[in-house]
Structure formats: structure tokens, C-alpha cells
Design a protein around this nucleic acid. Sequence first.
RNA 1: UCCGGCAUAGCUCAGUCGGUAGAGCGGGUGACUGUUAAUCACCAUGUCCCUGGUUCGAGUCCAGGUGCCGGAGCCA
Length: 446
Amino acid sequence: MYPAPSNTLKESFMTVTSIDRIDQYDGQTVTLRGWLYNKRESGKLAFLILRDGTGFIQCVAFKKEVDEAVWEACKGLTQESSVIITGTVRKDDRAPYCGYEMGIQNIEVVHKVEGEYPISHKEHGPDFLLSQRHLWLRTPSQMAVMRIRSEIIAALRDFFNDRGFTMVDAPIVTANACEGTTNLFEIDYFDDKAYLSQSGQLYMEAAAFALGNVYCLGPAFRAERSKTRKHLTEFWMLEPEMTYIDLDQNMAIQEEMLCYVVKRVLERRQQELKTLERDQSQLEVIQGPFPRISYHEAVELLQAKGSEIQMGDDFGAPDEAILGDQFGGKPVFIHRFPSAIKAFYMKPDPENPEVALGSDLIAPDGYGEIIGGGQRIDDYDLLLQRIQEHDLPQEAFDWYLDLRRYGSVPHGGFGLGIERVVAWICGTQHVRESSPFPRTIYRITP
RNA sequence: UCCGGCAUAGCUCAGUCGGUAGAGCGGGUGACUGUUAAUCACCAUGUCCCUGGUUCGAGUCCAGGUGCCGGAGCCA
């Protein structure tokens, strides 16, 4: 018979494999290590649904064909108990999930769950699920979102690495604000105050003057009391910065990057997109060129659609949603916003100094702004003037001004919100679901 | 910070006119040799968010508070 499990498993010559490779072992006896996802049993027959992180498989035990101890172990098994199952792989049309099932020969219960597992296979509300996020991650939809998130980040890194960009990490603890000063998380820093970074951009500008084209990918923190489906207090941002680039080239690389990412998810994460029941035709239309309209044109378009927006106002959420849905499901660039509603470092358009050489990329289906970027001011005097106009503490920006004192060049870049892109590609209702452990205004656990 | 909504079993919710607290799922027990979120029978489960008020009587009505959700502002 088969050896007693735990201490002899290594010497048992059993092949330990994973569910995603099970099709290579048809007819063979292998060992899987996983967790009990679900169980169905009748008097003399038990179906155990095993998950191991790579997939799901149905394992079958007939009372007559297994040891009594194995039968008893199967019967007593509870949801999410961890188990090591050895059995014969066979193709079976009745098997759910992967088309294969495993005839159980031996089972080792690594840890049996006592008491109720909090998450059932029926519906739950979002607040409850978020309070159980550490367990919710085990469900198929959440695993699929995390796999797609991982693929998106890998694709973004590959895109820039393949084009000669250098990855430079930006600091998390900073002394100055990149955007406004009202949205900073303040921390004690020995006898001083410090802040959690809102953006790595200013540091990327310094790095670009050293290395040429660079990017960072890291967390950003905003102490905004925002309670919308597009906001987290901690989110991840990709921030490339490029020298000798203009606004059109900047938008072009954003477009190329996003098309590459969407294409790669379509190619490599079919299974996950199906699990999420994502309408893939909506992703297939994501191909360049993306429409590019000016702020001025956008406001006229919105007014024609019945929006109350006035020239000079920033877009509200409904405005963004309208703009995002005007172009056949493609994202749209809005460029040349009024300088007054944009960040202090945005370079004015030489042809119309009232507007800034910046752009936002608005995603369809109400996901809103997924990228914001543009040209940076490269003139020392103008940058100093803007810092003063915005009542920013000049000393904290001395090093940033230095970049315009020592070999300033035209440059620009952009910031891409990872959670928003993941939410859009996955079709999740809320960015909460696209972060493994989301932080919102009222939630910092788990 | 402002506006709106919600709060009842572990979860999702119902609860009529103010009159003894309910269902489904989950849990437990039992039956069943091909189940697909299995089915069937039985069992157990409550600070009705908190405080105060009205009333013979409050889950229900009133006031205040707390928590959460959605939105605005701000932003990726």
C-alpha cells in the first residue's frame, strides 16, 4: 500500500505536481498539495474540490476502493482545510474545472479547519469581504484579479526595460510635497516632521538628468477623504520620465505602452479574464491611435452633451465618464488644460501660455483618469515663480530648482495609476478589488 | 468637510397598522455510488448598532450619537 504520508512522502517516489500541469499526467499517480475548496458527498462516494493556487480539480473517493482511514478523513474534511492528496489522474467529461479528475488513493490532512470558514460560496457584501480580505483572496475571482495585476506590472516593466529605460526607486519618506500640501500623511521623523510620498516624479526628473530615460514603480499616498470607486489612500503608480521629449511624443509612448499591456493580458491571461467574465471585445478595440482632443474641445463637447461645466473648470466625475465613452471604447487624451487647474511644475504652451502642455488619459466605462502627464517647466525663473505662487516652502524645493540651474533640458513624463488600470482591464466595479490589501479612509486592516 | 442612503442570526436579507424574532445560505446530525454553488429530512443559532424619549407595549415612531456605503470636492 501507499506509505503513511508526512515523514515518508519524500521517499515515496510520488510525483508532486500542480493542477495547472495535470494534463501531463493522464493515467499516472501523482500528489497534489492544496486546500479544500468545496465538498460534495453521498453515502459511499465523496467529491473533494481541491485548489492549489494554480487551479481547481475534483478529487473522487469511492468508499469501497480506499482505506477506511482515508474514507473517514475525506468525510470529515472541512472547507479550506489544507491537504496533500495522492491519486490517479484521469480525463473525465463529468469533471468540472479542468476536464481531469483525481481518483483518491491517499490523503494527508495537513491542517483541519475547526469551526466555520467565514466565506461561503454564496453572496457576500463588499464591506464583509473587505474585512475578510486575507481570506477573500483565496476565491477564484480575486485570484484572477491578482494574476492580471501581476501580468500588467510585469508587462509595464518589460515595456520600459526593452526600450532602454532605467528603473530608479523613488523615496517613500520625503520632506516636501509634489502636489498639494493638504493631502499629505505626516509622520514623526526623529525630532522633525516628514511625509509619505505622493509621487516619485520630482525624483524621476533628477534621475532623468543623470540616466536619460527612467521610471519608477512604487506606492503613493494621498490623505484625501475620498470615498469613490476610483480612490485609495495608498496606491501604486508607474512614473516614467524622459529627456528631450515633447507632448505629442509623450502621448504616443503612453498609447503604445497601454496597447502593449492590454494585448499581453489578452494573450497570457485568457483563463483569468474568463473567470472574471470580462467582455474581451472591449479590450480588443484598445489599439492606437487614441483620440486626442484639447481641453477646449472637451469642454465644448461636454456642454453639447448637457454638462454644466464652464470653460476653466476641472472635470467632475460625470464629465470624465462622458468623455471616456465618446470614442468607441477607446481611451481618450485630453491635452492643454488651463494652467490654473494643473500642478505647479507644468510647462505652459508657448503658443498659448494660459494652457499647460499636459494631458490626461481617460478610460472608458467610468474608470476615469488612468494617466496624467506632460512637460515640466525647465526654466529656473518660471519654476521659482510658480513655487511662490503656490505658497510652497522654497527651501524644500531647492534641490528641485537645482535641476534648472545645472544643465536644464526639456523633459516630461507621466504617472499611471496601477489600481485604476487593473480595475479597468479586469472590469471590477471598484479599485478596492484591484489592490491586494486596499487602504481606504476608514480601513487599514487586514 | 458637505449631501444622500443603510444598520435585524456567521453571511445575504424579509419583517405589513406599534402587539410572542423570520427565510435562504452557512454550521451540526442523518439518508443517498457521479455530484457540478448536489439533493432530501431534522436541529441549533439574536445586545434587532448605541443612548434617551413617546406608548399599556418599540425591530417598527421621535431625538441625539456611532459605524459603514455611495457621491461631491481633490486626484492616479
